[in-house]
Design a protein around this nucleic acid. Sequence first.
DNA 1: CGTGTCATGTAATCAGTTACATGATTCA
DNA 2: TGAATCATGTAACTGATTACATGACACG
Lengths: 192, 192
Amino acid sequence: MSRMNKTKYSLLGLLSIRPMTGYDIKKYVEASINYFWNESYGQIYPSLKYLSSEGLATREIERQESRPDRKVYSITDRGREVLRESLTETPERQPPRDELALKTFFGHHVPPVISIEHLEEELARLEEVGGYLEEVERRLVEKLAGEERGPYVLATVRLGKYSVEARVKWCRETIEMLRGLEEAEEGERREP
Amino acid sequence: MSRMNKTKYSLLGLLSIRPMTGYDIKKYVEASINYFWNESYGQIYPSLKYLSSEGLATREIERQESRPDRKVYSITDRGREVLRESLTETPERQPPRDELALKTFFGHHVPPVISIEHLEEELARLEEVGGYLEEVERRLVEKLAGEERGPYVLATVRLGKYSVEARVKWCRETIEMLRGLEEAEEGERREP
DNA sequence: CGTGTCATGTAATCAGTTACATGATTCA
DNA sequence: TGAATCATGTAACTGATTACATGACACG
């Protein structure tokens, strides 16, 4: 297993918060950083195995009856070192692939109402993300008061908020614009 | 070749603008929609072959001396139909993987200056994108006046602008914040 | 004389998701 | 009784990038 680019570092980061099992990690990601990061089990479990084989994490097995043993991974000093190194390297951009934008770009091939529907679905999704962000923030402000990771974590929450705001603004505005087009088209149909 | 999900539809969309070769498509993407979409040759050429084999595009070969023949693809009526169908389907989100956000999130493991550097590089990149967006807009406003695709294309440009603005704001603000942390740390070192 | 543009394509590799396999326990 | 939670993991697949192969011509 020599693959694994970003996952490796993200897992080291997550284990730097506290020792976790693969299952814990997945939950943590979903509860806290899902608005800018994601990991799947198919990625997590092999990567954890790799980390412990390389001495970047240790594994402790907690016996359990009637359910699989918990395999708790902890970051090692060497792991922390590798994490710091990786944090120093310039982050790479993932190549953009925004399907909503693409479908909007080619929206003139279908009636405006189609694009409006996509935008309204996006708006609903963004509201959810907004709520999730609020919750994350509330939970973390208390928890991180005084901790040195506090400002960093709250910064990313702000990034989430700004991104959501920008997109919400765009969706609203574009829906407006498309409604205008729709009316114009109807007008043409009535009196051509 | 049965793979190809989004690429297929994006190519149909691009061919709906005008007949193009694989090379043209790549250039077009880079010049016009690169801020929200990308395609690589390794994806384009096999996909074009697939589209013509399925009757969604036709291919005409333009003989050329001293360089490979141009293979110009045009969308067919069936292709337009498939495109319209695909535009009707709800767009999917690509799972988020924002490395800059991740490195900011774990930034407390390294001196603030490291995160500041990442943010400043991002700021430089965003400025470039901003300039590119301006240029795209200027070029398109003239070209699309009166065309029905005009409003749709300009809408996506606006999305680009808003996204860039939001991120710029965040970068600036976060750099500020980190400079504050830096000073505080220096202060502690002087008088502990 | 070297870099960029035009122009095609394939093979190797990779990062990552999804589906599958297993199974007890708790809660509505 | 059926869904959700806890808990591990692998195999198959897929979407996509990158490197490689080829080569003439124009421009500075």
